[in-house]
Nucleic acid binder design. Sequence first.
DNA 1: CCAAAATTTAAACATTTGTTTAATTTTTCC
DNA 2: GGAAAAATTAAACAAATGTTTAAATTTTGG
Lengths: 206, 206
Amino acid sequence: MKRDQSTEEKIKAAAKKVFMTKGFDGCSVRDIAKEVGSNVALLNYYFRSKEKLFELIFEGAMSDFLQSMIAVFSSDLSLKEKVEQLIDKEFSFFMEHPELPMFILQSLHQNKTNAPMPSQFLEPIANTGIFEQFEQAKANGEIRDVSIRNVTMLLMSNVHYPFMSKNLTKQFHGISTDQFEEDLKKHKEIVKELITNYLFISNPKA
Amino acid sequence: MKRDQSTEEKIKAAAKKVFMTKGFDGCSVRDIAKEVGSNVALLNYYFRSKEKLFELIFEGAMSDFLQSMIAVFSSDLSLKEKVEQLIDKEFSFFMEHPELPMFILQSLHQNKTNAPMPSQFLEPIANTGIFEQFEQAKANGEIRDVSIRNVTMLLMSNVHYPFMSKNLTKQFHGISTDQFEEDLKKHKEIVKELITNYLFISNPKA
DNA sequence: CCAAAATTTAAACATTTGTTTAATTTTTCC
DNA sequence: GGAAAAATTAAACAAATGTTTAAATTTTGG
């Protein structure tokens, strides 16, 4: 019957680490087995195949990826506060999971995941009521007449890209990791100011 | 002696196409040979190895990647005009080479290129005098007191990311390719306004 | 036209790949 | 304690990988 639960978890953790850094095509199941300190048969014993294991890791990553958004959207803050909090939270989240944006985008780019993104991921976001809050603010004249898709693109661009471009940016400017992280902090503040200034109409007296 | 020059070029073109879409690890040399309509021995006859061929393609891509910047920076426009032109030119460039940002960042992310980015790439940019023009504008009080690294991060984020996130974005919003490209156009205009508004100090009468 | 050089091909190579088999060890539960 | 179940291992499998060899074809230049 049941034995040591942690073996399955150890494999998942190792697979996550290896897939995240090297990508699906960039690693072998033996790489993962070595990371576990075991052999390849055990991986397939628990997860049937490399592909199945990858899908599991990918879905977990996608879930993490969206979770920090949902947490912010679910609060009862004003739209402006939500935007500011989102940027803050996403930055500190990706500071701890810097590989995540590249992993997600790369996997989707090469269609490593057959399933179209399950509504399981999107629905929770819709359920926060953020879309309605956004349209309401637009109707109230609090924010610009811009589509939520464009706001999303702005936010994602400025929050995800810096973590994906670490190597390019460091080489481009010839800077250290420390300097890069300093720049990252500054970037966050700029983006916050930039986006709120753009989106929210200055109301000298609403 | 010399024969049909176009064979070597055909291989490079095929390799570029395959590497760009599937990545170094995601394809085999036989994939490339099939794209050429030939066999694997010919690839190594011309390029010695898969790695050597990849490095060649990568360097060409990096060169393309930076070329459109250099063209804009070399002109004798004002800084504001350069920023606006840069955004326009980069967008139309990536519209025709949408795989490029992902290819470059992915390759650098997984260190598929051993060489630290050769100064051959960066020097031409420095030689345009754009850095001096930027510092001059800052000294003149025309623009904010912000590092050029942060401006670069802003520009790159907003120009590169949308092309990298096509699949994520389409799935996220459940939109068609046509709608996505519409959003892209709008994004470009937003980014132009956003960045120039942020960077350039409004001078009612300079 | 013809020998030498360059190009192209098919086949073989040694490894590595993902997966499976079968045997062994460990755990479970009466 | 011991049989059944679960977990783990080593070994083998066929297929795919990057590269090389050697032979065949085509081009070159006198």
